[in-house]
């Protein structure tokens, strides 16, 4: 049963990708990609919580369906690790051709809903020169964040000062939302991640 669904997915993907309009327009609205009807049993798209992007639009994780996604959990007030994580994701992005990059999603989810409002996320994007529409910066309520972190395996804890202690990992999901690769976000070498992503873009 799963096999035929995957085939359907792949087929829809091929069809979808043949439309140039699709390739250009990457605003992540709540618009569901028709390709991802019922997520497969090990897909993170099974999480149906609502998230708010920097531009104020709400969406669910399944909106990323149809393309592989590079995803990490950070927060804007983070001094060192999070900017480094963003730089590493950009490194991965740069390793792709323009066409490849357009066919991938890059997503940052905030651990800090209280301080990271959509406006703050937009500010962060400007600060880090994130202009490519393939990127999504998002926030959600505390419960959704915990659920996403538990699903991915990210450990985090809010401490007294309002900051967060957390893991530093970059995950790569395939088009169906299944985690396929994990990289240490503190590493200088993103080759493994980049190769994994390229393999998913074939």
């Amino acid at each position: 049963m799963k096999v035929t669904l995957k085939h359907k997915l792949l087929l829809s993907l091929i069809l979808a990708c043949s439309y140039p309009a699709f390739a250009d327009n990457h605003e992540h609205h709540h618009q569901q990609q028709t390709a991802v009807a019922t997520p497969s049993t090990d897909s993170v798209f099974n999480i149906t919580d609502n998230w708010t992007a920097a531009n104020g639009n709400t969406f669910q994780l399944s909106a990323f369906g149809g393309k592989p996604t590079v995803i990490a959990m950070v927060y804007t007030s983070c001094q060192y690790v999070c900017p480094l994580t963003v730089q590493n994701i950009k490194r991965i992005e740069r390793s792709l051709s323009a066409a490849q990059a357009a066919n991938a999603n890059f997503a940052l989810f905030s651990l800090d809903p209280e301080r990271d409002t959509p406006a703050k996320l937009a500010e962060f994007a400007t600060l880090h020169n994130i202009t490519n529409p393939s990127w999504t910066l998002a926030q959600g309520n505390a419960g959704s964040i915990r659920k996403l972190a538990v699903t991915l395996g990210v450990k985090y804890k809010k401490v007294d000062s309002g900051d967060y202690e957390h893991d530093a990992t970059i995950f790569i999901l395939d088009k169906d939302g299944v985690v396929k690769y994990q990289a240490d976000a503190m590493s200088k070498n993103m080759n493994g991640a980049s190769d994994a992503l390229k393999a998913l873009l074939k």
Binding site: Y75, C78, Q79, C82, K157, V159, D163, E165, H166, A168
Partner: peptide, 14 residues
């Protein structure tokens, strides 16, 4: 490996 519970293995916190 909880023997070095003093070491920082997580980031950003206090």
């Amino acid at each position: 490996d909880s023997r070095n519970s003093g070491d920082k293995t997580q980031f950003c916190g206090s």
